[in-house]
Design a protein around this nucleic acid. Structure first.
Lengths: 403, 403
DNA sequence: GCTTAGAGTTCACTAGTTGGACATAGACGG
DNA sequence: CCGTCTATGTCCAACTAGTGAACTCTAAGC
């Protein structure tokens, strides 16, 4: 990085090449590394020795029953990364290692009206607790990924005006957390992190172009293009919630009318059920009732699905992603919502684009954002390519998260 | 390329770095090259000598009135590239050099009903003629870019079923032309090439994220994301023409209803003026009449603009590009169509995304596609990054194209 | 005319990759 | 049970390529 064209940069690149190969395959012998990376056996030998001395990899003597291969794998304590996710009602923290394994994860409720300072204090405490619980050395923290539920300017790190976390607008979450933890902190919004999480660990594995659609109090999308999060020059890409579906529809909080959000987001949908089902319904509750067979809730969810499908059809015509992953509470409704989405997509998208699109529920549920924060920390720490094109399948299994 | 992590690959990368720096700046002294590339002066000295001996660059002894700097520039005859563009009614060919200069350009009418074979014959003849006219050696051809007006599968190179060039579907244009010219041929559709052309030579210079919208017999968009054409996994990204604007609108040729195309494309718009203006109107004619003040044509064009604006607003919400460039015949209408587009965008896109969006007419007119084909040939020939982030302004002036 | 400063070159040095030789250890066949 | 075979990993000499420092050259400034 320092000197763009020097030999040392070549060496660094080769180091990363080896690390990436090992990470993608789990464990490899040196000869296998040489074959997959294209480097010579001698070079691999040197690099492995260097990495071993640096503590990045571990060499286990002849595990497999071959001739005499020593398998190389990433050492579990080479470094750890931390993901922190602020939601509207919760705070969630995960600790993982360089091998993409989740070591610990925990969430706790967070008061919506809590001040930013309180929030960051809580986050710091929870991080400290999890670090202690896993028993790793604090100095091993390589980076932190941070998710916030609202528009954030990635360049300056300033949180925009957001109706979701009232007292927080104008703060710089990354700086705050960096001050408390003393390590690099990278921020992004929840939709982008959800996309990243599902891409690395969930329903988006192996896909290089996907859209993650999160339906909660608003509707947002995280776009992955060519294996990387796409934020757009202004940082506001993915605002699928404000696609216009009906020019004379309900007025949206953004000031326009008939945005997708006004047909799909919790704040606009829940009131529909007030007179029949009471006022204290949550989206989660509606989903549960729908699964239990409640016809009103089923109808509402299907309508939401149809509208989301219209938005996805537009997205599909424009970007032609190979996969759309649905996240947020609504994803729990499964086929009740996915069916109508697929139907709408089939109806409104051009056939050639719709044909190869798969619409899947997120595999990570509420964990998508924290895990995405973890992945963000991993991707920002120099191993720039998380998924290398045709990943050959054998990715790490996610360690069962305790708590 | 051959050996991914070797020193020779590093050397090759450094060669490209220098070539790119020189190309972006037009001409540089060695010391300037050293500064912009980050390489040491000694290395630059060696590389320049190598490139000079290879005939890639020329060193002109002290042109500027400095102390004693020898300016390095790409040699005009280091290699040439060719762009070929098939339109619905024309065939257009351009010849350029590695310095991004257009040496010759010519277009001739092409019968819509011409067979594919006839078309390729004509293209070959025109290419040969232009090569001879410029007097360069045929062996210097480094590559050909080819534009076709219809859906093409970039992987297999097969032209999809297209209503625009009837007898051509199923052919493999790149193979055909490769067989005749004997050099590598790269294909893409007209919207993508238009985007590339405007990005390199036209209204999109210096921008890394833009959408080029071409309104002709259909409506298509070419998307540039992070400085590169984005085609999507299935190759059908950019189908802005089939965004749904009105669920119960006119039936579109794609089978859906109320697509943007049904409100904006020539085949749907021209009939509106039949009873008042006669049946043999073309889009070009409507634009001319509108500029001359014809109220009916003005109204129609404004309506088209408003509808395109709705589509652009959706695009803008999803992708947040920093620029939208309008191409095709319609762009000639200037503010008559841009005004309504901007108005619609302001109305339907979320403010933060719309604020930083600029909507401009294409600067290249009907030449955008050929020039894009030229740029495609250039970008595919190993100099993978055409525009390197913060291009410092001083791009080549386009040499006036003689017919 | 002398000084100065920036441009480009040369040279010795260093970093880093590679091919080939070599040691090692299990598998296989007899 | 032993020799052969084969693939693994390591070591060494050769080679490639970039770098810093010293050096030369030329025009500008005083």
């Amino acid at each position: 990085m320092e000197t763009p064209g020097s030999q040392s940069s070549l060496h660094r690149a080769n180091l990363e090449r080896v690390v990436r190969a090992v990470r993608l395959a789990g464990s490899l012998t040196q000869a296998e590394i040489a074959r997959t990376t294209g480097l010579s056996a001698a070079t691999v030998s040197n690099i492995v020795r260097e990495l071993k001395e640096g503590g990045t990899v571990e060499v286990t003597p002849t595990s497999a029953g071959g001739r005499r291969a020593r398998s190389v794998s990433l050492s579990g304590d080479a470094g750890i990364v931390i993901g922190v996710d602020f939601g509207h009602t919760h705070l969630r923290v995960a600790v993982g290692n360089l091998a993409h394994q989740v070591l610990a994860e925990e969430s706790e409720p967070l008061d919506v009206d809590a001040s930013a300072t309180q929030g960051f204090d809580r986050a710091e405490q929870l991080v400290t607790r999890l670090i202690e619980a896993t028993g790793v050395d604090r100095s091993k923290i390589a980076g932190v990924g941070l998710g916030v539920p609202g528009p954030i300017d990635v360049e300056s790190g300033t949180l925009g005006s957001t109706a979701i976390l009232p007292g927080w607008s104008g703060t710089k979450p990354a700086e705050e957390l960096h001050g408390r933890l003393g390590v690099p902190v990278h921020v992004d919004n929840d939709a982008n992190l959800g996309a990243l999480g599902e891409m690395v660990w969930g329903s988006g594995r192996g896909v290089r172009d996907l859209a993650y659609i999160k339906v909660a109090s608003g509707v947002g999308a995280g776009l992955v293009i060519n294996g990387k999060i796409y934020r757009g020059p202004g940082g506001t890409a993915g605002e699928i919630g404000h696609i216009t579906l009906d020019e004379s529809g309900p007025v949206c909080r953004c000031g326009n009318r008939g945005c997708l959000e006004t047909f799909a987001a919790a704040r606009y949908v829940l009131p529909l059920l007030q007179s029949s089902h009471g006022t204290d319904l949550t989206m989660e509750g509606v989903v549960r009732l729908a699964r239990d067979g409640d016809p009103g809730c089923r109808r509402v969810i299907a309508d939401v699905g149809r509208h989301i499908g219209s938005g996805v059809a537009n997205l599909c015509n424009l970007l032609n992603p190979s996969r759309v992953v649905l996240g947020g509470d609504l994803a729990e409704a499964g086929e009740l919502v996915l069916g109508p989405i697929r139907e709408s997509v089939g109806r409104y998208a051009i056939p050639s684009a719709a044909r190869q699109l798969s619409v899947l529920p997120g595999a990570l549920g509420g964990r998508a954002e924290v895990l995405g924060a973890l992945a963000l920390a991993l991707s920002e720490m120099g191993d720039s390519t998380l998924l290398d094109g045709t990943a050959t399948g054998t990715l790490q299994a996610v360690a069962p998260a305790f708590t």
